[in-house]
Each structure stands twice: as C-alpha cells, then as structure tokens.
Amino acid sequence: MSYDVAFRHQQALDPSALSSVTTTLHAIGAAITDCRNAGKDAEIDPAVILLIRHLSQVCEARPPSTLLRRECLDAIAEIRRHPVLKTLAYRGVAYDEPAKRLFHSEGRIAVRRLAEALGLAEGSFDVRSNKGGVAVSGEITLHGEDIWVQLSLGLMGPDREILYRRVHGRSDHIGERNHYASIRDLMAPDRFARKIRRDLNLAPATPSDGRLFA
C-alpha cells in the first residue's frame, strides 16, 4: 500500500535545523524513503531536490575543493603506509560483517600479490575465500601445485595469521609440516616469498616463471 507524508516537504521549506552534512544527508535519505513508500519518483520530487540543494549550501562553508582533494590524496597515502589488513588483524573482524567483507577483499588481493612474488603462473594455483560463521574471520587460501598458504585471524594467536606448508598437487589438502608467519610478512610479498621457498625447500622462482601482472 502506498502512502505519503508531509514531513519531507516541511523540512525542505524550512531546513534551518539541518546545519550539518550528517543531519542533511539523513533528511535526504528519509525523504527518498518517503518517496519510495508513496510511489513517487525521488529524482523529480521537489522536497528531495530542495534538500539536496540545501546540502550544497551547507558544504559551501567547508574548505575549497582543491584543498579537499589534497586532503584526500594525503589520506590515501597515509592508508597505504598503514595497510588495512594489519589494522583488521589487530582489531579482529568477528561479529562485524563490513570489516569481514573488507578483510576478505583485501586478503585476496594480498594473497594474489604473494602468488606473483612466488612466481606462480596464472592457472597453476587457486585463491579461495571462505567467510565461515559470524564468530570467526574465515580464511583466504592460496593453493598451488607445491605451495599452500592460508590467511586467517585469531585461530593461532597474534603474529601467526599466516599458515603455509608444502603440498603435492592441488588435490593435497594435508601437505607436510606447518609453518607460521605474521600478517606483517604478507605486507612484504617479495621477501616473504623468498622465506616460503627457503622454509619449504623449494627452488627459487626463475625469470621464466609466469607472472600475474604486467
């Protein structure tokens, strides 16, 4: 059943109480929800449009775009200096679905970078992600012909987030003796790849090995 309310129109006509970005965005979101409930098109709803225009007025008091762009670039550089995987490892992701989703997304990227550093040819390995239940981080697994590496949080304690071992083919899920490493090692994939090959008595990667990225 469709129904409409007057509140969004009243806010749009007198937005004086909406003095911050947060409160104005909340009002816009609520107005769009009202449109949906009323079967109205939010793209042309006068109240929604007026509230969005008010948001632009609220933002006029903020620094100019050139400065904001510089701050965004600085923030990106700072984030790259402190990889999010390390932060997630320290704080954990249990019972936090957005954090777990980020952990698995960034974890897959990091594991694929490790595969590149190991010199694994595309198609010679699998990268699997298993989120598990809400109380655990789940795991990201790299499984090659002779290398098995798994990233997970909390199971083995701090600085043991990486489990790796030698295997004999991609159907081997048991492998040889387990080795452990810190998530910090994963942040330096070239050095970690050399350590893995040394620990597992594997031949060094050769220039002819397939690479994942140009």
Rank of each mutant, 00 (worst) to 15 (best):
Y3T: 06
A6P: 02
F7I: 11
F7L: 14
F7D: 09
R8P: 08
R8K: 13
H9T: 08
H9K: 05
A12D: 10
A12Y: 10
L13K: 14
S16V: 12
A17N: 10
S20F: 06
T22A: 15
T22I: 13
T23P: 01
T23C: 09
I28L: 14
A30D: 15
T33H: 14
T33L: 14
T33W: 07
C35G: 08
N37F: 11
A38K: 02
D41R: 02
E43P: 00
E43M: 05
E43I: 00
E43D: 11
I44Q: 09
P46A: 08
P46G: 10
V48N: 12
I49Q: 13
L51V: 04
S56R: 09
S56H: 10
Q57Y: 03
Q57H: 08
V58Y: 06
V58H: 05
C59G: 07
C59I: 00
S65G: 00
R69A: 09
I76Q: 14
E78R: 15
I79C: 15
H82L: 06
H82E: 10
H82R: 15
K86D: 08
T87S: 10
A89I: 01
R91C: 09
R91T: 15
R91W: 09
V93W: 04
E97D: 11
E97A: 12
A99W: 03
R101Q: 13
H104R: 06
E106F: 05
R108V: 01
R108G: 07
I109L: 12
A110T: 10
A110C: 07
V111P: 01
R112N: 05
R113M: 07
A115S: 09
E116T: 01
A117R: 06
A117L: 03
G119M: 04
G119S: 06
L120A: 04
A121R: 12
A121I: 05
A121G: 09
E122M: 00
G123M: 07
S124R: 09
S124V: 01
F125N: 05
D126F: 14
V127I: 14
R128P: 00
N130A: 07
G132D: 03
G133E: 09
G133S: 10
G133D: 13
V134G: 00
A135F: 02
A135D: 10
V136I: 06
V136D: 00
G138W: 01
L142I: 07
G144Q: 08
D146C: 09
D146Y: 04
V149H: 04
Q150D: 00
L151W: 04
G154E: 02
L155M: 04
L155I: 02
P158D: 03
D159C: 13
E161G: 03
I162L: 15
Y164E: 02
D172Y: 11
D172N: 13
E176A: 12
R177G: 03
R177V: 10
R177L: 10
Y180K: 00
S182Y: 12
R184N: 14
D185Q: 12
D185W: 07
L186W: 07
M187P: 05
A188K: 14
R191W: 02
F192I: 11
R194A: 11
I196C: 08
R197K: 10
R197H: 05
N201E: 12
N201G: 13
P207F: 06
S208K: 05
D209Y: 04
R211S: 14
F213S: 10
